[in-house]
Amino acid sequence: MIERTRTVNVVATGIMIAGILFILAPIVIAFLTATLSYEEFVSGGGIRLRVSDHFWENFAHVLFETRLPAQLWNSVVISLLVAFIKCAFAFTATFALVFYKSRLNTVIFAITIVTVMLPLELIVITTYQVVANVLMPINWLLGWTGLDALIERLTGSRPYLEYSLLDSYIGVAAPIATSSTSVFIYRQFFMSLPKDLPRAATMDGAGPIRFMIDILLPLSWTPLVATFMFWFIGGWTAYLWPLIAASTPDAQPAVVGLARLANTDPDRIPDVPMLMAGALFVSFIPVLLIGLMQRQIVRGLNLSEK
């Protein structure tokens, strides 16, 4: 800065310290509490800012006596699926929208963008119905076209197709992946590329698909990696939908598992140290990801320009 602004800098530093403390306080409290044994916790009367040496006991309890490790694996698979679907589907579609001449471009863009406005959590009631039987639309089609009556006359039974995706990885991941924010981000990025890129590729004998894979994909690495990590975190932190779509503990992701674990007998003081260890356990992968990769994520999402 070109001026002397000591007081302002002191105030700014104070504000930042307050902000960092506010963000870190719950994490530190969770960590400190996770080092207590249950007896220490109960006799100490709750929050005490001191470190004890029972962290590994609590951690071992989480690892060997809860379902959280298996549910952590569910979270990994579901989050990878969400991130992959969101990136891959949006990438090919946005490529078509930006680099193809078509009258449908505007319509398809509008159809995908509406999904950004309405979060999945708003429509879980009926999404549940659809995922409980993804073949329902085919039944409607049979009904509207009168084909079901025809089949009934031929075979004697009215066809009713049923296939449930509840409790499956894809059933949990697919509805989360519908929000097509990626289309927005990729479109902005593609539009910033030189307009003559596909022309040059054609002169070198590359068709559209070749252009997409060999030229566009490497060029788009920064936004692709950023969005992939961001949607991975989004899939990991989803709660309401996985809570509904995965009813059995074996199918639930770790966040839902932790919440079920915390939901215990109200008459007894819960095993808070173990729960805090569990909360750290289900959060460390995405927090590490965002802590280590935040520069790439922020740059790739291109947040400085709207």
Binding site: I85, A88, F89, A90, T92, A93, F95, A96, L97, Y100, L104, I108, I111, T112, T115, L118, L120, I123, T126, T127, Q129, V130, V131, V134, M136, P137, A174, P175, A177, T178, S180, V183
Partner: peptide, 19 residues
């Protein structure tokens, strides 16, 4: 190229909204 995302959002977004 556009079919995957359209199929996904029709089944898991537009049909639930319609329902």
């Amino acid at each position: 190229l556009v079919a995957p995302i359209l199929i996904l959002i029709v089944i898991f977004f537009y049909i639930p909204v319609g329902l």
